[in-house]
Write a protein that binds this DNA or RNA. Structure first.
Length: 480
RNA sequence: CGGGGUGUAGCGCAGUUUGGUAGCGCAUCUGGUUUGGGACCAGAGGGUCGCGGGUUCAAAUCCUGCCACCCCGACCA
């Protein structure tokens, strides 16, 4: 196998230049292309199919938990954006403005939504009358625009696709329950669909969403030891509902402001998917999210019977719910196809030639381990299903192992400074909770507090920066 | 936004110093032979040289403004 590595030489090795490796992978595998406008990417069919699988999974979960989809407009009047002070301060620097309709200057400029809390709250204020209507459980699938300075496909684009849920509740407890329920769905989605282990927890005051009471996050660790914020769920309390004057009559006929949540994941997840699982040969896609789970490569396909049998096999696999592609194009050699589908990360490849058909077998190759084994055609549908299942579990555990290898514990500030300068990863450390210590860490090491994880450990009694009493363990890392 | 680099056929590049018919490899198309880890032979097609101004008889090449991409840093709910 090793002598074939030259065939994928168009992909820079991860160890040599991780950023270049990432760029090579997304370009060579036809996930995206650059558009003429900076920071705006075209998502090509292979990339979009991954997003569709994420959408389908989440949409089902949201609906199972009582949420309904809606759609709010792309444009938001400036006056609405300005209503919640922290929110506008947080987002104003990266908002795109519409100032003209045709040749006519607009009386009030309109912002292209960077997120939809403001327009949604404006409408909720109009609709909500009674406690009987609560909770409001809504979601929308859309794209948002944030004018970014440094952009990278999937990881940080000026426009990205996402879902944003926006809910209203009678009590803060219910809002908190909703916030955590959604975070749990995100965490499970990462594990069950993307085979990515997440650290979940609470953001610091400095890192939370502009306008939130509390922000919860799922954080993943990439192959290069940098963290990726992969999804957030915000408890907005009454910050927006007061600013937008959303009121209802409660059970005692008293006027109340409801409690509010919002939450979202985006196409950024695809960037994480790539940076957690893929290797120097290209993409490695976990089977549940892979657009194509199995590719059949016929050998000597012009020989009578080969393609017929291959099509039959395709049908058999599809019958048990597997996403199969049969590459019967005559102009590429089998060797070319092997390399191509490996680069594109198709989980399983089945090679089927005249000899195999005669013996009632096929060769099955795994993308993650590159193992190749002969299997009986007769039992392929069950065996392939099992293999895909195993692959998902194995990939999750490999990712977990990778993360654990790159997770360190530091008990002193010096240990953090020294260690993080030579090896990136998650650093568990105690923190007193003050902003000064947080800022110092960021300034001097480049690392930020990714979250205060739900799973706490009392590593020591004192903050690693100031030495004061500390009861919070945090995960620190340099982040995307 | 600061520093560095790049932009010539789908991809990778040469040509720019010293202005003078736009090239190479891969890919693509046609025909044939092939097929178990990127096959071979023969023929063919494909370029407003990132975009706009300027200098010149003449600009991929010189001057100038802009745009995009990559890398590093800053910023990033």
């Amino acid at each position: 196998m090793s002598e074939n590595k030259e065939f994928v030489k168009e992909i820079t090795k991860m160890e040599d230049d991780f950023a270049q490796w990432y760029t090579d992978v997304i370009r060579k595998t036809d996930l995206v292309d650059y558009s003429p406008v900076k920071g705006f990417m075209v998502i090509k069919p292979y990339g979009y199919a991954i997003w569709e699988n994420i959408q389908q999974y989440l949409d089902k979960k949201f609906k199972e938990t009582g949420h309904k989809n809606m759609y709010f407009p792309l444009l938001i009047p400036e006056s609405l954006l300005n209503k919640e002070k922290e929110h506008v301060e947080g987002f104003a620097p990266e908002v795109a403005w519409v100032t003209h309709g045709g040749d006519n200057e607009l009386g009030e400029r309109l912002c292209v939504r960077p997120t939809s809390e403001t327009i949604i709250c404006h409408m909720y204020a109009k609709w909500l009358k009674s406690y009987r209507e609560l909770p409001y459980l809504n979601n929308q699938w859309c794209s948002v625009v944030r004018w970014e300075k440094a952009t990278r496909p999937f990881l940080r684009t000026s426009e990205f696709l996402w879902q944003e849920g926006h809910t209203l509740h009678e009590t803060q407890e219910e809002a908190q329950e909703e916030t955590l329920k959604i975070l749990k769905i995100y965490e499970e989605m990462a594990k069950e669909l993307l085979a990515i282990p997440m650290v979940s927890g609470l953001k610091s005051e400095k890192e939370k969403f502009a306008g939130a009471e509390a922000t919860y996050t799922i954080e993943a660790l990439m192959h290069d030891g940098k963290a990726l914020q992969s999804g957030t769920s915000h408890n907005l309390a009454q910050h927006f509902t007061k600013a937008f004057d959303i009121t209802y009559l409660d059970r005692a006929s008293k006027l109340q402001h409801p409690y509010h949540t919002s939450w979202g994941v985006s196409t950024r997840l695809i960037g994480g998917l790539i940076m957690v699982h893929s290797d120097n040969r290209g993409l490695v896609l976990p089977p549940r999210v892979a657009p194509t789970q199995v590719v059949i490569v016929p050998i000597m396909q012009k020989k009578p019977g080969v393609l017929d049998r291959a099509y039959e096999l395709k049908k058999d696999l599809e019958a048990v719910g597997i996403r199969v592609e049969l590459d019967d194009s005559p102009n590429y050699s089998p060797g070319w196809k092997f390399n191509e589908y490996e680069m594109k990360g198709v989980p399983l490849r089945i090679e089927l030639g005249p000899r195999d058909i005669e013996n009632g077998v096929a060769m099955v190759a795994r993308r993650d381990t590159l193992d190749k084994n002969q299997m009986e055609l007769e039992h392929l549908p069950e065996m392939v299903s099992e293999l895909l299942e195993d692959m998902h579990q194995d990939m999750y555990h490999a990712a977990l192992e990778m993360r654990e290898e790159k997770t360190y514990t530091v008990k002193t500030y010096n240990a953090l400074v020294e260690s993080i300068s030579e090896k990136q990863g998650f650093y568990k450390a105690m923190w007193c909770g003050c902003e000064a210590c947080e800022a110092k860490i960021k300034e001097e090491t480049g690392a930020t507090i990714r979250c205060m994880p739900f799973e706490q450990e009392q590593l020591s009694e004192t903050c690693i920066v100031c030495g004061e009493k500390a009861d919070k363990m945090v995960y620190l890392a340099k982040a995307y």
